[in-house]
Amino acid sequence: MPETPPVLPPSRFRHARQDPFWLRVTLIVAAAGVVGLLIVVPVVHVFTGAFSKGAAAYWRNLFGDPDTRHSILLTLTVVPGALLANIVFGLAAAWAIARFRFPGRTLLTSMIDLPFSVSPVVAGLMFVLVFGLQGYLGPFLQSHGVKILFATPGLILATAFVTFPFVARELIPVMQAIGDEEETAAVSLGASGWQMFRRITLPNIKWGLLYGIILCNARAMGEFGAVYVVSGHIAGQTDTMPLRVEKLFQEYNLPGSFAVASLLTLLAILTLVVKVFLETRVSPERRHVH
C-alpha cells in the first residue's frame, strides 16, 4: 500500500522512505533474488545431494568411511586448539592495545588484521618456509623429533594464523569502550592482577569474547587454503573436513562429498543462530557504555 502523501509539498520535504513504490519493489526483489540464488539454493542443494541416496546412505557416508570419520575427529581436535591459542592471544593483544600506549601500538593493531588480507594459501606457504625441511626451523625440529608440517601441530598453527583477528578485533573496541576505571578501582581496593581480571574485566567483556570465539570457531572449521598447504593432504592422517569434502568430490563420490559438506553447513547454521542470539546480548551492553 502506498503511504498517504504528506500535507507539506512533497518536493521540499522528501524522505528516503518516500522513494517511489516501483523502486522499493525492484530493490527488494533484487536483494532477495541474489540471496536466494547464491545462498539459499546452493545450501538446499547440498542437503538434497547429501540425502540423494537416502538417510541410511547418508549415515554410512559420514561414519562408515574411516577416512571421513578421521577427518571429522581431526577437525574436532584442530579447531579447539586454534581457538584456545586465539583466545589467549586475543585477550593479550586486546589488553595491550586497549590499556597501554607504547611505541609500535598502531603497527600491532594493523598487524592483527594481516591474516584477513593475506591469502590463506600464502599463509600456508609461509609456514612451509619456516617449518619445512628446506625452511629455517625444519632441520632443527626434525633433529629433535618434533613434527609440525604434515601433522596436527601444523594444522593448528595454520588455522590459528588464519583466524587470528577474530577474538582480538572483537575485544579491542569493547575494552576501549568500557575503559580502565573499574579495573583501577579494583586495584585500589586491594585486588591482585588476577582477581581484577577474573572479577571485573572478564564479566565485562564476556559477551564480546564469546561472540569473537563463535566467529573464530566458524571460520576455523571451514578453513581450507592454509590447511591444504601445510597438511600434505594425506587421507586418514591430515585431512580435515573441508579437505575431505574436496577429496571425495575429486573422486566423484558426490553423495559422500555432500554428506560431509552438509555437516559443515549444519555447524555453520548453528553458529549463525548462536551469533544472532549473542548479538542481542552484546549490543545492549555496548549501548550502556558511555
Binding site: A185, V187, R199
Partner: peptide
C-alpha cells in the same frame, strides 16, 4: 608501595562502580 598496598580509599570522578 603500589596502589594495592597503600590502604587508600579512592572515590573516582565517574564513580567507576562495577557495573555487573
Amino acid at each position: 608501595r603500589g596502589a594495592r598496598h597503600r590502604g587508600v580509599g579512592f572515590v573516582f570522578q565517574h564513580y567507576a562502580l562495577f557495573r555487573h
